[in-house]
Structure formats: C-alpha cells, structure tokens
Amino acid sequence: MLEALPQILIFGLILGGAYALASLGLGLAWGIMHVINFAHGEWIMISMYSTYWLTVLFGLDPYFAIPVNIAFGGLIGFLSQRHLVEPVLKGGATATILSTLGLSSIMIGVTQALWKSTPRNTPNWYVETALGIGPVRLSLAHLMAFAISISAITFIYLFFKRALIGKAILATSDLIGDPEVAGLVGIDVVRTRTLTLILAGVSTGVAGTLIGTFYYVYPYVGLTWSLICFVIVVLGGLGSFKGLLIAGLIVGVLEGLGSLALGAAYGYILVYAVFLLILYLRPRGLMGRRA
C-alpha cells in the first residue's frame, strides 16, 4: 500500500491542476456576482461531449476542440447571464441557484435524449501514452491537462491584475470592490457581469476539453464535477486565485488517498467528508476573504 503513495501523490497533484481550472468559472461567478451556478458541472459535461464528437466524427486531435469549446462555452455563459441570471438577480442567491438548476436539468435531459446514458471515452493517443518518472507513471493526457490548466489560470489571473476590463470586473464584486461605487465611477455593472459569466464559460469549456481526454462522459457526469468544484471553491476561499489552485491540488490528492483507503470510486467519500469538516472549522476557506 505504501509503495503506491508516490504515484497517488503525484497523480493527485497533476489531476488537481485540471480540477483548479474546472472550478475557476464557478469561483468567478460566485465570488464576483454571488451567483452559484448549479449548471456548472453540465457546462463541463457539454464540452466533454463536444470534444468526444469532434474527435470521433472528424478524426481530429482532441485539443482542436479547445477553440470550439471556448466559443461555445462563452456563448453558454452569455446566454445564461442574459436569460437565467440577470432577470432573477434581485431574488438573491437562491433564485439564481434554482434558475441554473433548471438549466442543468434541461442539459441532462437533452443529452440523455440525444445520446442515451452510455458512458463514452474520447479516443486519443495522449491518454494511451504513459510516461514513467521513477516509480511514478502518468499519461500524456494528464500532463497536458496540468500544463494547459496552469497556463490558463495564470493567463486569467493576469487578465484580472493587468487588463482594465479585468480590474473593472473586480471593482463590481462586493467581496473585493464595491458594486455601488463601481456604478458611480462609470463602470457598466451589467456588462461586467456578462463578461464574468462569459469568462466562466470559456474557462469551463477549456477545462471540459482537458477532462474529456482522460475521463468518460455521460449525461449525469456533471453532478460529480459540480460537487468537486463546489468543494474546491469553498476550500480555497472566495476571491483568491492562489487558494483555488491549492484547493484543486489538495482535492486531487485527497481523492487519490480516499481511493487507496476505501477502494476506487469511493475516494470522493473522503473529499466530501473533508468538505464538511472545512465548513465546520473554517467556512471561509483556506485563503478566502470573509464571505
């Protein structure tokens, strides 16, 4: 059991990078707009499907799905903001939860009606190519996912720190800035909210593509991903990129340790149990500002 430990730790950290990117969109909408997107897992699910179909139907390399999923994810984010989130925003967090829950239900229903419940693996040579580093073996697909995730997170981080629109978005968050003052100084608050959800959709689209290269997709897969992302965002703390990244890595490792202790497929028990513990001990997360 002990000799499996280095493999589990390294694999968990690598997986955790992709987890962090997968959670980024959820964390942005939550931290900036107080919108908890219950369709987040289904956003991931749909870009996994799109990766699958682009690869299978056109024989493309799965990473060619990234630009498609960026566009598609941005579109879903835009439409969700305009039709599901903005109109019910005055109803508070609950109204947006229920509104996006409706979207999640529709997306599960449509994919199930179209493609049945069959789990599908995106065929690609990256996942079949294993690289050995000492006692640790990792597939190229996992390594690529880690590298692309870290780059994407860095890119979005710099966007918020450097770009004017990024700073404007942060100013409208009442966690970091102040929405009323932001409105007074001439920032179009609705537009920044739309941009936030577009950005959430884009990052989720990229994450879905990466996850699709090594994880099977079926209509209900989003529930698992939603939950993992909720755990990461809460664990990391709202409003912190660093917290999110660290939380992603922790959850990746926890899942591996859980699988080792409880058997494959049961690793999430440990993740969820730690989540409850965090809620009890430190509800604002590792590095979060006060919620």
């Binding site: 599901l84 109109p87 019910v88 109803g91 109204a95 229920l98 509104s99 829950l101 409706g102 979207l103 999640s104 239900s105 529709i106 997306m107 599960i108 229903g109 449509v110 994919t111 199930q112 009606a113 049945k116 419940s117 209509p219």
Partner: peptide
C-alpha cells in the same frame, strides 16, 4: 426518451423562478 421529463422540469422551474 428517458430525458424528456428532465427537460420539462427544468423549463418549469426556470419559468416559476422568473
């Protein structure tokens, strides 16, 4: 059509909330 009722439920909850 296993997913059909999920689509209807989803639309209903969105309409009711809004």
């Amino acid at each position: 059509y296993a997913g059909a009722h999920l689509i209807i439920y989803g639309i209903l909850i969105i309409l009711v909330v809004r």
